[in-house]
């Protein structure tokens, strides 16, 4: 039995308090890339009752994604945007979402991210990461960006950190551990990094700007 909307809201307020929940429920967050980072960030924010998620990814679910991304075996072949929307709705039936099954580049970034208050960079390609961060900081002066770098391998979970680089730019990860043939991505360490990103989003919403 799916709870009614007011029951759902009451449960969130019970956990987060009226004022904070009001802020969470009126915030719009864009998640750019729906892989190991993005799918886990979206899960955490959906559970927290975020107002709206803008979900962006051009790719489809692949069997090699399932060890760390929030998809299921029966979703192989589906677009990640649609599969994730389905999974998030099962958790939070009242979540508002905007799906964009496209590749972000400098021609469409501004339009895709216009409604977002906070942007999560959750790509895997380092050049794509740098491009998005530079674009948002240069061209979208009111937005916050929470990016990630360095979460591959079996290194200690304690080396995953959040750094504040400037007023609108936060970076999560250990800044070193690159994915390679010898060092793959483990769900636990990627989730730690995604949790840092989601938590940073919630802290910005709470106006707790220091790390």
């Amino acid at each position: 039995m799916i709870p009614a909307k007011d029951e759902w809201q009451r449960a969130l307020i019970y956990r987060h308090g009226t004022e904070f929940q009001k802020r969470i429920s009126s915030s719009v967050v864009a998640v750019c890339g729906l892989g190991g980072l993005g799918s886990n960030i979206a899960m955490a924010l959906a559970r927290a009752g975020i107002g709206k998620l803008i979900l962006i990814d051009f790719d489809r679910v692949d069997i090699t994604n399932l060890h760390r991304q929030q998809y299921k075996a029966n979703q192989i072949g589906l677009y990640k945007t649609e599969a994730l929307m389905h999974n998030l709705i099962e958790i939070n039936p009242y979540l508002e979402m905007q799906l964009h099954t496209v590749c972000i580049d400098e021609t469409n970034t501004k339009e895709l991210l216009t409604d977002a208050d906070i942007i999560c960079e959750a790509f895997d390609n380092p050049e794509a990461k740098a491009n998005l961060v530079n674009f948002v900081l240069e061209k979208m002066p009111r937005k916050y960006i929470v990016a990630a770098s360095g979460m591959a391998g079996i290194g200690s979970g304690n080396t995953i950190k959040t750094k504040k680089l400037s007023r609108r730019f936060y970076l999560c990860g250990d800044e070193k551990s690159e994915v390679s043939e010898k060092s793959g991505l483990l769900s636990s360490r990627v989730m730690l990094c995604a949790a840092h990103q989601a938590h940073t989003v919630l802290r910005i919403i709470a106006e707790e700007f220091e790390v």
Partner: peptide
């Protein structure tokens, strides 16, 4: 200066 050099993985 703060220089961030992104590494692959996500």
């Amino acid at each position: 200066l703060e220089v961030v050099s992104f590494v692959g993985g996500g």
